[in-house]
Design a protein around this nucleic acid. Sequence first.
DNA 1: ACCCAAATTGACAACGGTTCTCACTTTATT
DNA 2: AATAAAGTGAGAACCGTTGTCAATTTGGGT
Lengths: 126, 126
Amino acid sequence: MTRQRSALTALLEQTPDFRSAQQLHEMLRGQGEAISLATVYRALQAMAEEGEVDVLRGSDSELRYRRCRRGEHHHHLVCRSCGHTVEVTETVVERWAARTAREHGFAAVSHAVELSGLCASCLDKT
Amino acid sequence: MTRQRSALTALLEQTPDFRSAQQLHEMLRGQGEAISLATVYRALQAMAEEGEVDVLRGSDSELRYRRCRRGEHHHHLVCRSCGHTVEVTETVVERWAARTAREHGFAAVSHAVELSGLCASCLDKT
DNA sequence: ACCCAAATTGACAACGGTTCTCACTTTATT
DNA sequence: AATAAAGTGAGAACCGTTGTCAATTTGGGT
């Protein structure tokens, strides 16, 4: 556990929404941390493999990271304006995925489900 | 409608699975078509905007395209070994998405749902 | 506290998919 | 056939990300 790594961990702990590696790097630099972009990438990659952070890819090709509160399987409802994120757990979708896979003879099926919209506070602002 | 564009359209018509722009370009070159990679990208981009093809991004950063049979909203069940694709329509998921959004005060919610697994014939091969 | 092997870091190059630029060619219209 | 608009090709540029490698830091054993 290095200084850089724990700074990133601490930052993620207090960042509620999905952020890109570059955003996180700028945030760390902004608060005076000496850390390189490559290290941020490496640390996030390692954390993602360990399941310590969730990874999401938006419409563009950049990945965004977030320290999720619940450890178990869940999905995200993300505001496409401000990035505000809600964790959602639902068995209906899981069951539907399993049933659909079985009906078509598929096995070892995983599913990617993400919802994006406009949150209440962003709606109020308009 | 140019020669290149119609060659690509014809190719997509007879390609059942999702293919990347570069794969489609190679396939066209392989059958003797003179077409540049940039043109393939531009044509696919235009078709995607028109809703003539569906776009999917795998685990990597490359986009894959497919001419879908049904015009209405649907999802995909994709074999992660051979790429074999099944189009799936289901109202359970749509209703769940709408309900979840409402519960959290979100509006204008869209959802991305993709299933990936191993198809029956790929399972047999093992 | 010190030594040392192993792991991590930083600066920068390289990579891969995609998009842009711009001169040239093709298409469609009159 | 003339011409404006649209599409094309070659290669550079772009952008997020990953690799390289020397230098630094970390943690365990003594």
